[in-house]
Design a binder for these strands. Structure first.
Lengths: 229, 229
DNA sequence: ACCTGAACACCGTTCAAGT
DNA sequence: ACCTGAACACCGTTCAAGT
């Protein structure tokens, strides 16, 4: 209809959408700000108004990626019936997303963001991990399991400094929950990597997801970390 | 000593070494052929004699990466005592390598190589996976477990076409072995990714490796796939 | 506030020319 | 066989100028 296509108030959103598509076509290395500007019908300097540099765009894409994955996992949870089924569905949703948007996933787990952008990415990741936590069934009373929202540093030591009594039953319970959750994310991430790198086929990947889900749910760790509804 | 540094017969090796160092400093995106040429003291066109383009260099680096990881795993196996200890040491060696040389690892599992280069990378990966297989203890008699050396394609269906008798005991045994091995690689890969992306700390990563090793060794899958020495 | 377009430094790739 | 150096197209980034 109009002569000059769009690029009015929503250039930022257009660029991000175009970027997601470009990522699927040619990966992170093939992602060019100038090419994006061309696709959006603006001059090569225009993106600068919304992203100070290429890194800023990449960081915004990482945040967007975590949001989309969060939605996918949420849908998987919504359409599930019981702990076992839920666990399996979430696992498949996670790996499917990681395989379909491999380049986006790469940006989400690059860890190259710095400063405020890094905090935003970590926050988006934290929201996803909190959702994964909720998929593990209700947490122990008094342990809301949200200690992963804070700083990305820490040292990994979280024992022996907040209980006055050395024997207050199950002192490592939310530690197990945290471990289980991260092990889940790591395993699904890794399976996706094997598929993307063609080390295994897609159907073999699906079988691996099922095997992993079974193994994890049947483990000693699960007994301490996961609870039925 | 000499005025013009080196670059005589071994420019290819020099470029690869320089590239590994550059990868550690500035990642895959920061790797530039011209910069490498400068570091090696040759003109920017010189690398062309050894690598037809940037992709060829990246593929060569992937192969080199698999060889180095293979060596690390082999050392871990050599210095271990018993199945459990061996398993744990290999796991840590794998993750340590992946964290220290994250950018190299990225190249190893990108899956962007094409043609002959892709076959070379797959072959190098196959050698590593065969070693991982051997770390799982002796295989069943008559199943040398080397069906992962072939083409990277397949469809994932490997049942019901080579046994004349439908009930020849443990028909899925080496299937379990394959699954276990790939699940191992996937899990360690994923843990490394979480560390690199700063989603977890290094010490937390080490704890995850131990938890994963324990969970995997104690699984039903392990009972079918792994054998004591 | 947002976009244009020239300018600059850097890059990968190609190729004739040297040794 | 291996390397040089000019040439070309592309890129990210900066910035004065427009609206």
């Amino acid at each position: 209809m109009t002569d000059r296509p769009f690029h009015h108030g929503n250039l930022r959103a257009v660029l991000l959408d175009e970027a997601v598509a470009a990522l699927r076509e040619s990966g992170v290395e093939g992602l060019s700000l100038r090419e994006l500007a061309r696709r959006a019908g603006v001059s090569h300097g225009a993106p600068r108004s919304h992203f100070v540099d290429r890194r800023a765009l990449l960081d915004a894409l990482a945040v967007l990626g975590f949001e989309r994955l969060h939605d996918r996992v949420q849908q998987a949870i919504a359409g599930s019936d019981g702990l076992r089924d839920r666990f399996r569905r979430v696992a498949h949703a996670y790996v499917d997303f990681a395989v379909e948007d491999a380049a986006l996933m790469e940006l989400m787990f690059e860890g190259k963001a710095v400063g405020a952008a890094a905090a935003e990415v970590q926050a988006a990741a934290g929201t996803l991990f909190t959702l994964l936590d909720s998929a593990m069934g209700p947490a122990r009373a008094g342990t809301p399991a949200d200690q992963d929202e804070g700083a990305p540093d820490g040292g990994g030591h979280d024992d022996g400094d907040h209980e006055g009594d050395p024997r207050d039953g199950d002192p490592r319970d939310d530690g197990a929950r945290e471990t289980f959750k991260m092990l889940f994310a790591a395993t699904m991430q890794g399976i996706a990597t094997l598929v993307v790198s063609r080390r295994i086929g897609r159907t073999q990947g699906d079988e691996l997801v099922d095997a992993a889900a079974e193994t994890m749910l049947g483990s000693d760790l699960a007994r301490r970390a996961v609870s039925a509804d």
